[in-house]
């Protein structure tokens, strides 16, 4: 319920003007242009391509693939990560600018999956980089990956970006 004086304030604004606060505006801007790093490691990458394609259409949420980590906000680890590749995935993650998010897509990226007991396979990408959202499935359907993106958006919506930058500056972590 809005107070009477609030309503009158809104009514006094001209058309096309919205009132919000800076944190919300920044979050809205960031969550609406989540550029994900264009790379896939195994069969999950096929579903990732489907999700980016016209049917699931990740583009409608402002998410487009970006072929360089330096311009990406989101890393979707799609597929089996070998120990050899793990070092490279970590390096790609480190090359992404803050703030950055990670979706672990499919059983292999979550825990090693089918190949967990292979000598050369990493038992979950969270051994190497921090993960925001885990998507189960082998491989997950495009709908599942779309939901993961929506979850990331929810997470960003709650964040206070300016406060976060300040906190990072003061404690010097990350």
């Amino acid at each position: 319920m809005k107070r009477i004086d609030e309503i009158s304030m809104y009514q006094s604004l001209p058309d096309g003007v919205l009132v919000t606060n800076v944190d919300k505006l920044l979050s809205w801007g960031r969550l609406s242009s989540l550029w994900y790093l264009l790379f896939g490691l195994a069969c999950c990458a096929i579903e990732l391509m489907q999700t980016g394609g016209p049917r699931a259409d990740l583009d409608r949420f402002g998410a487009v693939p970006r072929a360089t980590p330096r311009q990406a906000d989101l890393m979707i680890v799609a597929g089996t990560v070998t120990l050899k590749m793990a070092k490279r995935v970590k390096r790609l993650y480190e090359q992404m600018p803050e703030p950055k998010y990670v979706i672990s897509m499919g059983s292999c990226a979550n825990s090693g999956g089918l190949f967990a007991y292979a000598y050369s396979v990493l038992k979950g990408i969270d051994k190497v980089i921090p993960v925001d959202i885990y998507v189960p499935g082998c491989p997950p359907r495009p709908e599942a990956l779309t939901e993961a993106l929506l979850e990331i958006q929810k997470k960003i919506r709650k964040e206070k970006y300016l406060g976060r930058a300040e906190a990072l500056e003061t404690d010097g972590n990350e």
Binding site: A86, K87, K123, G124, K127
Partner: peptide, 30 residues
């Protein structure tokens, strides 16, 4: 196929799977 600093030859029958690789701890309790 394997990284250059890999130890051992994995398709030998007496090969023991490594628990870590460089600084990566590759153990997980399922």
């Amino acid at each position: 196929l394997l990284p250059e600093d890999w130890e051992g030859h994995p398709l030998r029958k007496d090969y023991v799977d490594p628990l870590r690789y460089q600084d990566i701890d590759n153990t997980r309790d399922y």
